[in-house]
C-alpha cells in the first residue's frame, strides 16, 4: 500500500517551487523523478521514526528475540561471568524439562485460573459499576467515579501493602471485621487467620487487590461507551414496546460488543503479568513454591534461584509470551477491523 512515489506525493508539503499540485486521481502518474530525489523525499518519515525504533529495539524488540535464543541454550549465571563459557545449544532441553515437569504444569494451570478469575471479576464488577454510574444523577455519579479513580490511581506496590496490612493476622482491620461478623455467616477464628501462608487465601487476596485496582478502568470505559449510544435508539426500542431489560440486550450489548472485546483482551494481558502485587503479598519471598505464578517463576529463575538459570527462565517466559500472543492475534484482528492499522 505504501509506495515511495505515493509517499512523496502525500508527504508534508515541501516548501519550494517544485511542489506537485495535489494529485487528482489514481490514474494520474507523476512525472518520473530522479532516483536521488526520490530517496531524499522518502527520508523524512524514516528519520522521524528512527529514534523511537532504536529505543524500542534496544529495550524491547531485541530482548524479545534474545528471549527465544536464551531459551534454547544452557545459560546460567556461569555463562554470564567475564571468563565464563559461551551459552551452549541444548536441543530444546529446557522445553522438554518444562513440559514433563508436573510443577510447571501446576504453575501454568494456577496462572490461567487466577487470571481468568481476575478478568471475570474485574469485568463483571466494572460493567455493573459502569451501568450504575450511567443511571445515577450527574453530581452523585461524578462523586462515585472520582472515588473509584482513587483505587485506580494507587500504585500497585502501595495497594498491595495496604491489603497486606488490612488482612494482617491479629491486627488487620479486615480480620477484625470478619471476626466481629456473626459466626453463623462467616465462621470463627478470623482474627488470627493468616492469609499469606496457603495458596488459596493468598490468591484470593491477590485477586481482590487486582480487581480493586482494575474495575474502575472497565467502569469508566463502559460508561464512555454507554454515553456514546444515541438516545434515539432507546426511544425507538421503547416505541416498539421493548422493556428496559430487552433494550439492554438488543441495543446496548450489540453496540458495546467491540468495546468489550477490547476490554477483555487488555484485562487478560494485564492480569497475566501480575508480579508486584504477588511479590508484596508473599512478603517479598520466593520460599513458598505453591504461591508461584508464571511471572513470579520467570523472575525467580532469573534472579533468585542459585544458580540463576536464565535459559530455563527464558523458556518459561516464552510460554508466557505465547499465551499473550495468542490473545494479541485476536486483539490485532479487532484493531484491523476497526481500521486502526490504516
Amino acid at each position: 500500500m505504501a509506495h515511495t512515489t505515493e509517499a512523496a506525493r502525500t508527504a508534508e508539503p515541501p516548501p519550494g517551487p517544485d511542489r506537485h499540485p495535489k494529485p487528482g486521481g489514481r490514474g494520474v502518474r507523476p512525472a518520473p523523478v530522479p532516483l536521488t530525489r526520490r530517496i531524499t523525499r522518502s527520508l523524512p518519515p524514516y528519520a522521524l521514526i528512527a529514534p523511537a525504533v532504536v529505543v524500542l529495539g534496544v529495550v524491547l524488540l531485541w530482548p524479545m528475540l534474545q528471549m527465544v535464543w536464551n531459551s534454547l541454550h544452557s545459560y546460567t549465571i556461569r555463562h554470564l561471568m567475564p571468563a565464563g563459557p559461551d551459552p551452549e545449544w541444548n536441543d530444546f532441553a529446557h522445553y522438554r524439562t518444562l513440559l514433563t515437569d508436573p510443577y510447571f504444569w501446576s504453575v501454568l494451570g494456577k496462572t490461567v485460573l487466577v487470571c481468568v478469575t481476575m478478568v471475570v471479576c474485574t469485568i463483571v464488577l466494572g460493567t455493573l459499576v459502569g451501568l450504575l454510574l450511567n443511571r445515577l444523577p450527574k453530581a452523585f455519579s461524578t462523586f462515585v467515579a472520582v472515588g473509584t479513580m482513587l483505587a485506580w490511581a494507587t500504585p500497585a506496590i502501595s495497594a498491595s501493602l495496604v491489603f497486606r496490612w488490612l488482612f494482617f493476622p491479629e491486627r488487620g482491620f479486615a480480620n477484625h471485621v470478619l471476626d466481629a461478623l456473626p459466626d453463623l455467616l462467616v465462621g470463627s477464628g478470623w482474627l488470627r487467620y493468616n492469609w499469606f501462608l496457603d495458596e488459596g487465601p493468598l490468591f484470593t487476596l491477590l485477586v481482590l487487590v487486582v480487581v480493586w485496582q482494575g474495575f474502575p478502568f472497565v467502569a469508566m470505559t463502559v460508561l464512555a461507551g454507554l454515553k456514546s449510544i444515541p438516545y434515539e435508539l432507546y426511544e425507538a426500542a421503547r416505541m416498539d414496546g421493548a422493556s428496559a431489560w430487552r433494550s439492554f440486550w438488543a441495543v446496548t450489548v450489540p453496540i458495546l460488543r467491540p468495546l468489550f472485546a477490547l476490554i477483555v483482551v487488555l484485562q487478560i494481558i494485564w492480569d497475566l503479568r501480575v508480579f508486584t502485587q504477588l511479590y508484596i503479598l508473599t512478603g517479598s519471598s520466593f520460599a513458598n513454591p505453591d504461591a508461584y505464578l508464571l511471572s513470579y517463576y520467570v523472575y525467580q529463575q532469573g534472579f533468585n534461584a542459585s544458580p540463576a538459570n536464565f535459559g530455563l527462565g527464558s523458556a518459561i517466559a516464552v510460554v508466557m509470551t505465547v499465551l499473550v500472543l495468542g490473545i494479541t492475534v485476536y486483539y490485532l484482528r479487532v484493531m484491523i477491523r476497526q481500521g486502526e492499522t490504516r
Partner: peptide, 21 residues
C-alpha cells in the same frame, strides 16, 4: 502492527533478556 504487538508483550516475561541485553 509491531507497536501493537510490543504493547502486548509483558515486560515481566522479557525481564531476564532485558537484563542480559
Amino acid at each position: 502492527v509491531t507497536l501493537m504487538v510490543v504493547q502486548m508483550v509483558p515486560v515481566e516475561a522479557l525481564i531476564i533478556s532485558i537484563f542480559i541485553n
